[in-house]
Nucleic acid binder design. Sequence first.
DNA 1: GGGGTGACCCAGT
DNA 2: TACTGGGCCACCC
Length: 107
Amino acid sequence: MATDPSDPAEYVEAVLDLVERIPPGRVMSYGAIAEALAPRFGRGGARRVGTIMALHGGSVAWYRVVNASGRTPPGHELAARRRLLAEGVAFRGERVDMARHAWFPDE
DNA sequence: GGGGTGACCCAGT
DNA sequence: TACTGGGCCACCC
């Protein structure tokens, strides 16, 4: 079906689809996204998710995706911070308070 | 076939 | 907290 691991485009779609499901005020790390899709696609990794976001993130809520440390993507720190603050996400200095806002599809 | 690159991650210092 | 080194995987020359 649409989840054909042999088609790279399907993985991209799955990543973007998952990002769209992140509730406002919550965030996910690149690694967490890779982990969440692992059962379905098996392949991929945090690094790949990052590349996908860099290329196609513009069409989704890219600012809800941060690295494992809670840092916002390079070059977009200000924009990400503004949007996240507007959604009620707490910051600790320059990073998101992951312990408080990290989200996982299971919820 | 070989080597460099990247919106990553983790452990060690 | 910051920096370093190793591992990771797909993509591009």
